[in-house]
Design a protein around this nucleic acid. Structure first.
Length: 301
DNA sequence: AAGACGAAAGTGGTTGA
DNA sequence: TCAACAACTTTCGTCTT
C-alpha cells in the first residue's frame, strides 16, 4: 500500500470493505470510495485447480489488527544460540523492544478506531445521516481517542456521543432519544459521554436552535411549505421576545408548527405534533399557550 | 368519540453550598 | 455530597367539538 491521505499525509489508512471505502485514520477523511476486493476473483472447483490459479496467499484480513504480520521480540537477552548478548547488541534490542511497545499501543488505538468507525457507519446509515456528519463524528472520535478520553467508557457510548455532537454542529440536530433508539447504549450514557468529551476537548456548541428542527418536523408532519415558513416566523418572533430561552427547543418548534398549521387550515392535532417532536402534548400546549399570549396571536378553532 | 385543557404529582439533570 | 430547582412528563378528570 503506497497510499497516503491527501489531507494530512498519514499513511495510516483503514480499509472498510463493506462500504468499499478507504478512510484515513488520522483525520477521518474518506480517501477512496471504490475499493478492490483482494480476494480471489476466480472460483475453484477442486484443490488442484485452486493451487494452479492461486497467485496469492489467503486474502489479507483486516479483522486482525496487524493483518497477521506482526513480529515478537523475545524478552530474554540471548541470541539464537542461547548465548548472552554483548552490551552493544543489548542496547539495540532494548531500543527495538521499546519501539515495538509503542507501535503496539498505537495499534490498539487504530483497532479501537476501526471498531468505532464501523459502529459510526452502522448508526448513521440507520439514521440516514449525510456523509459530512459521519466524517465530522469520525474526526471528533479520533481526537477523543488521541486524548485518551475513551479509556474506561464504552466505545459505543462515545461514538454515539460524537455523532450527537456532529449532528448539532452541522445544524441537523437529532435528539438523544433518537440516537439512543439505534445505539446499543442508553440515552443517559450517550449524554454523559457527549458532555465529557466536549468538556475535555474544550468544544462549546451553542444551545440547539429550535429553528433547526422545523424543516425536519415539517416534512415528517407533511405540512405545506407555507405552514413551515410561518412556523419559522412565529419561532423567530418568540425567540426575540425571549420565550424560548431555557425551554426545550423541540417543544418550541412543535408549538410553532402547531399554531402555523391551524392558521393555514391544515390543523394538526397536538398529539400528532408532539409525537413527531418527541415531547408530550402538555409541553406543546404550554409552549403554544405562551406564544399565543405573549405574541398576541389569534388562534382559535 | 376524539381532541383539547389544566391541575397535580413525578422524573432526571443541573447548580450551588 | 446533598438539597433546591426549573423544565418537562405522566396521569387523570373535565370540558369542547
Amino acid at each position: 500500500m503506497n497510499d497516503q491521505c491527501p489531507e494530512c499525509g498519514s499513511q495510516n489508512l483503514l480499509h472498510d470493505y463493506d462500504r468499499a471505502e478507504v478512510v484515513c485514520s488520522e483525520c477521518g477523511l474518506v480517501v477512496r470510495e471504490t475499493l478492490l476486493d483482494l480476494g480471489p476473483e476466480w472460483r475453484a472447483f477442486d484443490s488442484e485447480q485452486r493451487d494452479k490459479r492461486e497467485r496469492t496467499g489467503a486474502p489479507m484480513t483486516y479483522m486482525i489488527h496487524d493483518k497477521g504480520l506482526s513480529t515478537d521480540i523475545d524478552w530474554r537477552n540471548r541470541d539464537i544460540h542461547g548465548r548472552d548478548l554483548n552490551p552493544g547488541k543489548r542496547a539495540q534490542i532494548y531500543r527495538m523492544r521499546k519501539w515495538q511497545r509503542r507501535i503496539r499501543v498505537s495499534d490498539a488505538m487504530s483497532r479501537n478506531l476501526a471498531f468505532a468507525l464501523t459502529e459510526l457507519n452502522r448508526l448513521s446509515s440507520h439514521m440516514q445521516l449525510p456523509k459530512n456528519i459521519r466524517e465530522a463524528a469520525a474526526v471528533l472520535y479520533r481526537r477523543a481517542i488521541e486524548e485518551g478520553l475513551v479509556r474506561g467508557r464504552s466505545i459505543e457510548g462515545v461514538t454515539a456521543g460524537c455523532l450527537y455532537a456532529s449532528c448539532r454542529k452541522c445544524k441537523v440536530p437529532r435528539t438523544l432519544d433518537e440516537i439512543a433508539e439505534y445505539a446499543r447504549v442508553e440515552k443517559k450514557e450517550i449524554g454523559r459521554s457527549y458532555r465529557y468529551i466536549m468538556r475535555e476537548l474544550g468544544i462549546r456548541l451553542p444551545p440547539t436552535n429550535p429553528l433547526d428542527y422545523i424543516p425536519r418536523f415539517a416534512s415528517e408532519l407533511g405540512v405545506s411549505p407555507e405552514v413551515q415558513r410561518r412556523a419559522v416566523e412565529i419561532l423567530k418572533q418568540a425567540m426575540e421576545v425571549g420565550l424560548t430561552s431555557g425551554k426545550g427547543p423541540m417543544g418550541a418548534a412543535a408549538a410553532a408548527l402547531y399554531i402555523s398549521s391551524i392558521e393555514h387550515d391544515q390543523r394538526k392535532t397536538q398529539r400528532e405534533v408532539s409525537e413527531i417532536a418527541k415531547v408530550t402534548e402538555v409541553t406543546v400546549r404550554n409552549r403554544y399557550k405562551d406564544f399565543q399570549e405573549k405574541l398576541g396571536l389569534e388562534v382559535d378553532v
